[in-house]
C-alpha cells in the first residue's frame, strides 16, 4: 500500500465534554491519531464509545452543550484557530465532507433532496442550479440511486437510499477527506459491496482520504488501511488493520473480535465481554476497561495506561500487554 507522507488529518489530545443534568460527560477523552493522504482509517467500538462525537468534533459541529479542546489540523491548518465562517469557506465540504448515520435524519424533511444538493453547492461555489443537478444526477447514478429521487423528499426514500444520497452529497465538491459514520448499516450486502468498491477506487485514483466509523468489523476489515479501537471515549488500540484484527493486543479489542459471529465456528457460540460499558459521567478510575477485564491487575485500577508502540505502527494502551507471554511479543 502506497501511502504518502502528507498528513491529511492530525488529531492531538482531543477531548469533548457534554454538560448533562447529571454532570460533565466526557464522550471523547484524550484522543490522538493521524491520517495520511490517500489513507483510510477505520474507527471501531461499541455504541456510545464516542465514535460519532469524535467525527462531529473534527468538523466542529458539536451541540451547544458540548465543549471540546485539543488540536485538530487539516493539511497542517489548525481548525481550532479558525472562525466559524472561515471554516465554512475553507474547510467544510470543500476539504472535508461528512456522511452521518442514516438514523440521524440528516436530510431536512421539509426540502427536496435536489434542493439540499443545490443549497450545499451554493454555499461554496457559484455553479448554476442546472449544473448542480447534472452533477448530482451523475453522482447518484454512481451510488446506484435513480436521479429522479432528486425530486423526492427525504422521507420518501428508504434508509439505504438516504445513506447513498448522503454519500453522493459528500462527494459533490470533490473533497480531499470524507468522514463516514456507519455509512453502510442500512444497505443490503450487494449495495454495500458496490459502495465500498467505489471508495476503494476513489482512494486509488483520486487519493481520497477517508475515516470510516463503524461497529461492523467486516466493513472496516474490507476498506481500512489502519484501524483505531475506541472504548469509553478513549482510543485504546490503533494500527494496521491486519495487525489489529490479526494479532489484537488490547483485551478489549480481543473481546470485540471474539464477539463477532463467525459462520465457520461450528458450535454457533460466540464470545462476549461481560459487564457493560462504563458510565461516562462517573468513569472508573485508572483504565476504563478494568472492571470488565479478566487480565486486570492492581495498577489498572489506579493509572490510565499510556499509548505504547508494540509492533510497527501498532499502538495500544494497556498495562498488562508486555507481561503476557501468549501474545508472542518479542
Amino acid at each position: 500500500m502506497l501511502v504518502s507522507q502528507t498528513r491529511a488529518i492530525g488529531v492531538e489530545g482531543l477531548n469533548v465534554e457534554f454538560y448533562t443534568p447529571r454532570g460533565a460527560l466526557r464522550a471523547v477523552n484524550d484522543v490522538s491519531f493521524e491520517v495520511y493522504e490517500g489513507e483510510s482509517l477505520g474507527i471501531v467500538g461499541e455504541s456510545g464509545s464516542g465514535k460519532t462525537t469524535l467525527a462531529s468534533a473534527i468538523i466542529r459541529v458539536l451541540p451547544s452543550n458540548a465543549r471540546s479542546w485539543g488540536r485538530v489540523t487539516v493539511y497542517g491548518k489548525d481548525l481550532g484557530s479558525m472562525s466559524e465562517s472561515q471554516l465554512n469557506r475553507e474547510v467544510r465540504w470543500r476539504v472535508i465532507s461528512y456522511v452521518p448515520q442514516a438514523s440521524q435524519n440528516a436530510l431536512d424533511p421539509l426540502y427536496r433532496v435536489g434542493d439540499q444538493f443545490v443549497e450545499t453547492v451554493r454555499a461554496h461555489t457559484d455553479m448554476s442550479e442546472k449544473q448542480v443537478l447534472e452533477k448530482a444526477s451523475e453522482l447518484l447514478k454512481h451510488v446506484g440511486v435513480d436521479p429522479s429521487k432528486l425530486n423526492s423528499y427525504p422521507w420518501e426514500l428508504s434508509g439505504g437510499q438516504k445513506q447513498r444520497v448522503m454519500i453522493a452529497l459528500a462527494l459533490l465538491l470533490s473533497p480531499k477527506i470524507v468522514i463516514l459514520d456507519e455509512p453502510t448499516t442500512a444497505m443490503d450486502t450487494i449495495i454495500q459491496a458496490q459502495i465500498l468498491e467505489m471508495f476503494r477506487q476513489l482512494k486509488q485514483f483520486e487519493r481520497l482520504t477517508t475515516i470510516f466509523i463503524s461497529h461492523d468489523i467486516s466493513v472496516i476489515a474490507n476498506v481500512a488501511d489502519r484501524v483505531g479501537v475506541m472504548y469509553a471515549g478513549r482510543l485504546v488500540e490503533i494500527g494496521p488493520v491486519e495487525d489489529v484484527f490479526g494479532r489484537p493486543l488490547h483485551p478489549y479489542t480481543q473481546g470485540l473480535l471474539r464477539s463477532v459471529p463467525d459462520i465457520r465456528r461450528k458450535d454457533g457460540s460466540f464470545g462476549y465481554i461481560p459487564g457493560s460499558p462504563p458510565d461516562l459521567v462517573n468513569p472508573p478510575s485508572g483504565c476504563p476497561f478494568h472492571p470488565r477485564c479478566s487480565y486486570a491487575v492492581e495498577i489498572c485500577r489506579k493509572l490510565m495506561p499510556p499509548m505504547e508502540l508494540y509492533a510497527k505502527d501498532h499502538y495500544a494502551a494497556c498495562h498488562v500487554i508486555s507481561s503476557r507471554k501468549d501474545l508472542g511479543l518479542g
Binding site: 462531529s56 451541540p63 467544510r92 454555499a123
Partner: peptide, 14 residues
C-alpha cells in the same frame, strides 16, 4: 436535530 448538525457540517452559512 440531525439535519441542523448536517447543515452546519456542509458549511452552510449561519
Amino acid at each position: 436535530a440531525g439535519y441542523v448538525m448536517y447543515a452546519r457540517a456542509r458549511g452552510l452559512d449561519e
